[in-house]
Design a protein around this nucleic acid. Structure first.
Ligand SMILES: [Zn+2]
Ligand SMILES: [Zn+2]
Ligand SMILES: [Zn+2]
Ligand SMILES: [Zn+2]
Lengths: 141, 141
DNA sequence: CTAATTGCTCTAGCAACTATAGCTTCAAGA
DNA sequence: TCTTGAAGCTATAGTTGCTAGAGCAATTAG
């Protein structure tokens, strides 16, 4: 049985975050001591570690909630879990693509700036006029 | 002189967003018509286009605020602007690096999953145990 | 002149936490 | 046993960058 502080240290998840996960129903309410303090068992620690690792890999809490609930109805669980992971992978790929476009554009405007007054600054010029951009770095994600 | 609707269409920035920018002091309060409606001049349109383009390139509002205020004290403005852009480039690069690590990890766990029951699902296994990960995909940014 | 559209303010909500205030409980040393 | 300091509790508000809705007033087209 761990107090919330020990659990926090054991998993690397901050105390307010643990309470937050409980509040939104991602983590079950643990038993309380006579003095109203939370006490966690090993299962809770594993569950929290799962949540934390999935968060580290960028899964949104809703996806994690779904993954955790799969253990209930076991039927096509693997296929569903894989599907959720594939969606996450697709989201990551999309964000990488967008960030790559941004990176190119930022690098380009820095490379072309050769100082002087503000009106000569290429950074300011490009920010004021998307026509000076090479790519379309569309406003999504 | 444009109404907020025309300005929105001209710049692609949604009406509530324009009002939000005004609220947080990023955009000056425009003149009002006799019936209390906002009317924008060309300068406001250019400023909003600048903001919008900088947002498209991922700059946070605080950085944009700083960029916009540079026109005041003109001295080393270009150097400062370039600095802000360099910080943004660094942030973008860091995010790309992290997302690349995530992408590799997600792809790996999907590649190694060969179905079966939930306990055989590699996705679930890896999420439950970071020791099965190849990389450190640290929890930052 | 009327009806549709556009505009106004204000409030609340999203994700996923983080921080603060003001209180209680617990553990360990003297 | 008393005391002090750390750790825990609840509740509320703030973060970023918007978005959605309610309930009105103003403008514009037919
Ligand atoms: Zn410059
Ligand atoms: Zn551009
Ligand atoms: Zn699987
Ligand atoms: Zn891992």
């Amino acid at each position: 049985m761990l107090t919330i502080g020990k659990l926090s240290k054991a998993t690397g998840v901050k105390i307010p975050t643990i309470r937050y996960y409980e509040q939104i129903g991602l983590l079950a309410s643990p038993v309380r001591s006579s003095g109203n303090q939370r006490h966690y068992d090993h299962a809770a620690q594993e569950r929290l570690a799962f949540i934390s690792h999935a968060r580290d890999l960028g899964f949104p809490l809703d996806a994690i909630r779904e993954l955790l609930s799969l253990s209930d109805r076991d039927e096509h669980a693997c296929a569903t879990a894989d599907d959720i992971a594939r969606r996450q992978l697709a989201a990551v790929k999309a964000r990488i693509a967008r960030l790559n476009a941004l990176q190119v554009e930022l690098q380009r405007m820095l490379d072309h700036c050769h100082g002087g007054s503000l009106s000569d600054c290429r950074v300011i010029q490009v920010l004021g006029d998307h026509g000076l951009c090479r790519h379309d770095h569309g406003r999504a994600a």
